[in-house]
Amino acid sequence: MAFDVTMGWDDMKIALGSTNHIENEELEEGILWEKTVWDIKEHQKFEEKPEFGTVTEVYRQNIIQEVNNTPKDVFVIIHLYQDYIVHCRLIDECLSKLAMKFVNYKFMRIKATSCLENFRDSNCPALVVCKNSRIVHQMIGCACLLGGIHISEDSIEWVLAQKKVWETDLQENPADFGKKQCRLSGRKTTWPIDTQCREDIITSMSGRKYT
């Protein structure tokens, strides 16, 4: 056996009697290399996108910092709520699910009066959407806009998709389908809450503003 003799990859294949497959294997290696480079680039692009996945509770003293520290071009969805308002609790549940679906979006919630002392309960629920430290959408008293008694994660997804916050595969607003079903059934909607809560919701649904 000779010493100080190096054998290249092609020489090794010749020695092993696989010369007939050299060209095919080189082609396969080239394709594999290109795919590996593409996968690495895609992985790097994915890594560059921040992931959140939850709804974060924020307070007056840190909400501005939380918005300003959000990476560039990332949308921030902020829910201004009051605990006793049923629609606010429902929206919180829906946003928790949407946060797990749209992990590259930052979801936050803040008690309305903690954010703005003079913010009226009748303006809750409210959604504020920010991007690059600027407010791009504000939906004040938005229970009806998001579907009223038919609010769901899909109805919220639909509304925000119409506002170009994200893309959706939904073909129509699910809340509209729910309203049609109620009309077809000929029944009055039953509120699964007591009289006082019903009055609170009616109050909270007055004086709505949409942008």
Rank of each mutant, 00 (worst) to 15 (best):
E167N: 11
G148N: 07
N132Q: 08
M7H: 10
N123Y: 14
S122D: 10
K97P: 00
C115T: 00
F102I: 07
K180I: 12
I14S: 09
K106Q: 09
V159N: 04
L184G: 00
I22N: 06
V67Q: 03
R120N: 10
C115L: 14
D200Q: 04
Q162V: 09
R60Y: 05
E34P: 01
N132K: 05
A143G: 06
I22T: 02
A175Q: 12
E42T: 04
I63L: 09
N62D: 14
I110P: 01
D39P: 02
F3N: 12
K163Q: 14
K163N: 04
M1E: 05
R183Q: 10
Y59Q: 03
E66R: 11
E199P: 00
E47R: 14
V37Q: 15
I149F: 12
R120D: 10
T203V: 00
N69E: 06
K72D: 07
R120S: 12
V5E: 12
E47N: 09
N104V: 09
H43P: 00
V76W: 01
D4H: 03
S133C: 12
R208P: 08
F119H: 06
V58Y: 02
K188Y: 09
K164Y: 05
E117R: 06
I78L: 15
M12F: 13
L90N: 14
N68S: 06
E29C: 07
S152A: 08
M108S: 07
P192C: 03
Y105I: 15
F119Y: 15
I151V: 15
K188F: 07
V86F: 05
N62S: 09
N118E: 11
L170K: 10
E26S: 06
D10W: 01
I135R: 15
F119E: 07
S206K: 14
W191Q: 00
N62A: 03
I22G: 10
V37P: 02
K35T: 01
W9M: 08
A2K: 13
T190C: 02
I110E: 01
L16N: 13
Y81T: 04
L16T: 11
S18I: 14
K164L: 09
S133M: 06
D39S: 04
F177E: 07
H79L: 14
S206R: 15
N69P: 01
R183E: 11
D200R: 08
S96Q: 13
Q171Y: 04
